[in-house]
């Protein structure tokens, strides 16, 4: 057992966990943050993606110890109170989901994509960048539309700041 201290969605968290605990287990089972999903559990599907120190990573393939001291953001941590994050709003407006299981990972990946590319995103880039996120319902078309829509919203929001 080890004591780990990290920041999750802006709040300090200290937990006593077995060293073999995965970050996704800490989030879901210990902290009750069940928005982060486990899809394949083999690092392929991206449903478990969260941000560690600003980078999108697979929380099913990260030991809690690796995140010790880090700043973790999950799907629960991106809205401002009742105001959805522009990426969440774009997914809703463009019907970028069907069953919704992959959506938290999609959104966390998509925010990372926009952060890395700025507003300069085209459809091909979005499709390439989303290859680590698997969706079995939508055929991806509306997901790509959502990300492109959110990229322009985030650019506008950034320009306004």
């Amino acid at each position: 057992m080890s004591t780990v201290t990290l920041t999750v969605n802006g709040k300090p968290v200290t937990a006593e966990v077995e060293d073999r605990t995965l970050l996704v287990q800490l989030l879901r089972d210990h902290l009750g943050l069940t928005g982060t999903h486990v899809g394949c559990d083999t690092s392929q599907c991206g449903a478990c993606i969260v941000h560690i120190d600003g980078r999108a990573v697979k929380s099913c393939t990260t030991l809690v110890g690796q995140a010790n001291g880090a700043n973790v953001t999950t799907i629960e941590g991106i809205s401002k109170g009742d105001e959805l994050h522009p990426m969440q709003a774009a997914f809703r407006d463009n019907h970028g989901l069907q069953c919704g299981y992959c959506t938290p990972g999609m959104i966390m990946s998509a925010i990372d994509i926009v952060n890395r590319h700025g507003g300069e995103l085209d459809e091909e880039t979005v499709r390439q960048e989303l290859e680590g996120n698997i969706c079995r319902c939508t055929g991806y078309h509306n997901i790509v539309k959502s990300v492109l829509d959110a990229a322009s919203r985030m650019k506008v929001a950034q320009a306004a700041e």
Binding site: S43, G46, I49, R55, A56, V57, K58, T61, T62, S109, D112, I113, E129, E131, G132, N133
Partner: peptide, 9 residues
């Protein structure tokens, strides 16, 4: 190599 989340790690 892999996908963006893999390349981050």
């Amino acid at each position: 190599v892999g996908d963006p989340a893999v390349r981050a790690r």
